[in-house]
């Protein structure tokens, strides 16, 4: 019986791991500009061999290569980044209520973007300012809280305080901003993939990839770090170094994602819980499955937005609308959140 359950869980895990690939292909065919699957195929072929399909409209190529492809890739990357970040931090802090923004990343990024928009103008991309100050916020948390090894509660509290501090700074910058800059800032804060371009991917994708690879290789150590520090040390783990590595990697991917698409709530909280409820708390599985499920939920949410209407709805609404019901059903079924 247990063997059957294991096989089922394994099958389900494989399904979730390959799901993003199917969704990736489906997502490329969804959008307000109706392109048939045949048209899409011809467009792809025309890219490989332009001479063989001269009749493909230029608009098809622009939509597929310059609009849908970067947007779907960005949705995948951001979904995976935020979910893995949430899963890693929950394991690290041994706290199921932690999310990816707990160390002040969201307010730091918002402040950085605002600062850039207000004082540097359009010549300087706000994403860079957002990324830099997201890292600064986490740095401030680590510096103020002292040795994270022995003061994890103080780390969490400092995260909350630094978040509040940067929120106050953001309000101050808003006070000095012209209304036109404020409009651009509020649009960014809403969180959206609507303006995704290759330029965004060039900036964010390498950073997210590096962070995800780091966390993938650190995943078994997250299991050890989930124990008490004494137990972890007795297993030969350099606790402080490993914790700092995890924090550095989560900061990198969350900051890179947030700087590009703004603040998308709930994903880093819900997805890791969904994975643990379905597959257990072993971080060797939780990390890759969170990446796959996060990427899938983000793509589905974005597909709904792009497929349902010609206007853009903030994606955070749909990640919550998809994630929370599944979360509640599983919670009711399994009656446990943290295994």
């Amino acid at each position: 019986m247990s063997g059957q359950n294991n096989k089922r869980a394994q099958g389900l895990a494989i399904f979730f791991l390959i799901l993003p690939l199917f969704l990736f292909l489906i997502s490329l065919s969804i959008g307000s500009y109706g392109i048939s699957p045949r048209g899409l195929l011809k467009t792809v072929l025309s890219v490989v061999s332009p001479a063989s399909h001269p009749d493909v409209p230029a608009a098809y190529r622009d939509i597929l290569l310059r609009i849908r492809l970067p947007r779907v890739l960005l949705a995948m990357a951001v979904g995976a980044a935020l979910s893995v970040s949430g899963a890693s931090l929950q394991a690290l802090f041994k706290n199921p209520l932690v999310n990816e923004y707990i160390l002040g990343i969201s307010s730091g990024a918002a402040f950085g973007a605002a600062l850039s928009l207000v004082f540097l103008g359009r010549a300087f991309p706000p994403q860079v300012g957002g990324f830099v100050f997201a890292v600064v916020a986490v740095g401030a948390v680590l510096l103020i809280s002292g040795k994270a090894e022995s003061h994890f509660i103080s780390l969490l509290l400092t995260g909350i305080i630094v978040t509040a501090f940067f929120s106050a700074l953001l309000s101050l910058v808003e006070f000095f901003a012209s209304p036109y800059v404020l409009q651009a800032l509020f649009f960014w804060l809403m969180g959206s993939l609507s303006l995704a371009s290759w330029k965004d991917l060039y900036i964010s994708l390498p950073l997210i990839a590096v962070g995800l690879v780091m966390l993938y290789f650190l995943r078994w150590r997250l299991n050890v770090l989930s124990m008490s520090d004494e137990e972890a040390r007795s297993l030969g783990v350099n606790v402080l170094r490993e914790k700092m590595l995890v924090i550095a990697a989560t900061t990198l991917i969350t900051a890179a994602a947030t700087a590009i698409v703004g603040i998308i709530g709930w994903l880093g909280f819900i997805v890791p819980h969904l994975v643990r409820m379905m597959f257990g708390a072993d971080n060797r599985r939780v990390v890759p499955l969170s990446a796959a499920m996060g990427a899938s939920i983000m793509m589905i949410a974005d597909d709904i937005i792009r497929g349902l209407s010609s206007f853009e709805i903030p994606i955070g609404i749909f990640t919550s609308l998809i994630g929370i019901p599944i979360f509640l059903v599983l919670l009711k079924k399994t009656r446990k959140v943290w295994l």
């Binding site: 500009y33 609009i67 849908r68």
Partner: peptide, 8 residues
């Protein structure tokens, strides 16, 4: 708010 694709 609309999508870039909608403009095309």
């Amino acid at each position: 708010i609309i999508t870039v694709e909608q403009i095309l």
